[in-house]
Structures are given as structure tokens and as C-alpha cells.
């Protein structure tokens, strides 16, 4: 009976989740512009995609910001986690509260508050401000990924290294970092994907002149999205899928 329910219910839910994605990918191979009518298979949109300077620029902005923001956030967050882990109870709980603020705040408030900061300080919005914003919302996720690994560590490991003659910097590089490396990778990947997908915060912290894919899609949504966008997101979707498979293969290989 339970099997029977599961056999029907789960496919239905998955259908609901995947229907728009299937539609989107199918549309990207449609020869016509129409969203509803199939006019034959074609790679037309994929060709147009690479010919569109606007989309290519947005792709460049999206990817470069995702890479840079995840690098900065990973450095900042890893160091912060190490610091927080060595603090007393009161100080560390205060720091964790500070870390929780951007995660509990709605994206729109985060975006608007940063926009106000940039306007108030007369920093014109663009690539740089978007990068700052992305580092800001990514860092807490890095901390949350690294923290559990630090908690798992023997608390005397660091002291043991100093005891054996290591300077604090040597102990950090050769003892702490290797032990928490899985957490750092998780954090970096997480911030990369978050950054790739972000719309709301980017929308408020950039100018119409510097657009990432999300803000470009948004500004085009009113005019009607061209299937080139579908082609691009289908490509990115596949790329992320491959990335996940590679990472999974690697981590499962590590476990053996």
C-alpha cells in the first residue's frame, strides 16, 4: 500500500518540479520563437546565444563575480570560522548572531540596505558593488560550512603543533587548514552556486549598465524572453550537473 502511494505520489511531485525545466529545454531547441508551438528541431538559439554580445557580457559578469565572490568569501569566512571557534562562549555566540543576520533577512532587505549604503557613500553602483554584495551574503554560508569541521577537530591539535615547534602560521597552514578542507570546499561550492543564481541582491546593487544573467533576464522579461536565454540556462544547467557528478565522484572516491 505504502509502495503503491509512493509509486504515484513521488513521480507526480517530481513532474511538477521538472515540468517547467523540460519545457524550457525543449523550447531552446525549437526552431520558432513561439513558446507554445513546436516548429522543428534547431540549434539556432545556441548559435545566436554565442553571437549575442549582451548575453556573453552578462555571462562573463555572472561567472567572474561568482568566482571572485566565492574566493573572497571563502578566505574571509574560513579565517572568521577559525577565529570564532577559538573565542569564548559569549564572543562566539555574538559573532554567530552577526553571521545569522544576513541569512535571516529577506534578500530584498539585504539588497536595499546595501543599495542605500552605496548611494549614501556616493559609490556608483556597478560591477564592484555587486561583487561586494555577493561576498557579503556568501561569507556566512562559508562559515556555517567550515564551523562543524572545526568543532570536530581535537581542540589540542593546534597546540600540539605549536608544542612540536610550529609557529602559529605554520600550524594554521599544515594542521588546521588540511583538517577542515572538506568544509572549505563545501562552502566555496555553495557560495559559487548561490552567487550564480542570485537575482534580488544583484538587482539592487548594480546599475543597468552592468548586468548579470539574472538582471538581464529580468529586464527582458517585460519584452518577452527570447529562447536564447533558455539555451544558455540549459547549458549552465548541464554544466552544473557535470560539476556535481565530478565532485560526488571525487568525494566518494575519497571515502574509499
Amino acid at each position: 500500500m505504502k509502495k503503491w502511494v509512493r509509486g504515484i505520489y513521488l513521480p507526480l511531485i517530481l513532474l511538477f518540479l521538472y515540468l517547467p525545466i523540460v519545457v524550457l529545454i525543449v523550447q531552446s531547441f525549437n526552431a520558432g520563437v513561439s513558446r507554445a508551438r513546436w516548429e522543428g528541431f534547431s540549434l539556432r538559439w545556441y548559435k545566436e546565444l554565442f553571437a549575442s554580445p549582451q548575453i556573453m557580457r552578462a555571462l562573463y559578469v555572472t561567472l567572474s563575480i561568482a568566482v571572485l565572490a566565492s574566493i573572497f568569501a571563502t578566505i574571509l569566512g574560513t579565517l572568521a570560522a577559525i577565529g570564532i571557534n577559538s573565542m569564548g562562549k559569549k564572543a562566539s555566540s555574538a559573532m554567530l548572531t552577526l553571521t545569522n543576520i544576513p541569512m535571516t533577512m529577506p534578500d530584498i532587505v539585504t539588497g536595499i540596505s546595501l543599495m542605500l549604503l552605496f548611494i549614501f557613500t556616493k559609490v556608483s553602483r556597478g560591477y564592484f558593488t555587486m561583487l561586494l554584495a555577493h561576498v557579503t551574503f556568501n561569507t556566512p554560508y562559508v562559515i556555517l560550512s567550515v564551523m562543524p569541521k572545526l568543532r570536530e577537530m581535537n581542540k589540542y591539535s593546534y597546540e600540539a603543533a605549536l608544542d612540536l615547534g610550529a609557529t602559529p602560521s605554520y600550524a594554521l597552514r599544515h594542521v588546521i587548514l588540511p583538517s577542515i578542507f572538506p568544509g572549505i570546499t563545501t562552502g566555496a561550492l555553495l557560495s559559487f552556486t548561490l552567487s550564480l543564481d542570485d537575482f534580488t541582491i544583484s538587482y539592487f546593487t548594480t546599475s543597468p549598465l552592468v548586468q548579470n544573467l539574472s538582471t538581464l533576464i529580468y529586464s527582458e522579461a517585460r519584452k518577452g524572453i527570447k529562447p536564447t536565454m533558455n539555451a544558455l540556462s540549459a547549458l549552465m544547467f548541464v554544466a552544473l550537473l557535470i560539476l556535481l557528478l565530478v565532485v560526488n565522484r571525487r568525494t566518494s572516491a575519497d571515502h574509499k
Binding site: 577537530m153 581535537n154 589540542y156 591539535s157 597546540e159 600540539a160 603543533a161 608544542d163 612540536l164 594542521v175 588540511p178 583538517s179
Partner: peptide
């Protein structure tokens, strides 16, 4: 001086 720590603190990596 060198120390033998409580619960050893061997480096797991």
C-alpha cells in the same frame, strides 16, 4: 619541552 596531550591530539590528516 614537548607535550603528550589528553586524547593524544594526533593529526588526523
Amino acid at each position: 619541552v614537548n607535550t603528550v596531550f589528553q586524547k593524544y591530539a594526533l593529526f588526523p590528516h
